[in-house]
């Protein structure tokens, strides 16, 4: 069973990880759009790239930890749902982000 301290640590550490990842991700989008790269050209650079595979796997893992914990805090404060219901919803949300995110990573790498 994960306790409150571990959840707090997971959210803060995933936030620390997300700061550089999000900045690099945003910079990448801007560069790709401004240079007018096509989807095929982008895929040509990402496919088979271990670097981008590791980068976006880390990104997805950090998001799958950080976002559901934030949603859990909001739901705990703003709804009258039972803690078990909130936890179950956030666990499912975590799995959804993980599956959808990793599917996208496999698709581009």
């Amino acid at each position: 069973m994960i306790n409150g301290r571990q959840l707090y640590l997971a959210q803060r550490l995933s936030a620390v990880l997300l700061v550089p990842l999000v900045l690099i991700h945003l910079a990448l989008i801007i560069i790709a759009v401004r240079n007018g790269l096509s989807a095929a050209e982008i895929l040509g650079r990402t496919r088979g790239s271990l670097l981008w595979g590791v980068f976006y796997t880390l990104f997805v893992l950090a998001v799958a930890v950080h976002v559901p914990l934030g949603v859990r805090n909001v739901m705990t404060e703003w709804t009258r749902l039972q803690p078990r219901v909130v936890d179950a919803f956030c666990l499912l949300f975590c799995l959804l982000l993980l599956i959808a995110g990793m599917r996208a990573v496999f698709a581009v790498v």
Partner: peptide, 13 residues
Amino acid sequence: VTDLAFQEGGCAS
């Protein structure tokens, strides 16, 4: 103390 501080409704709130 730290575990008590981080129980539901503790300092993380």
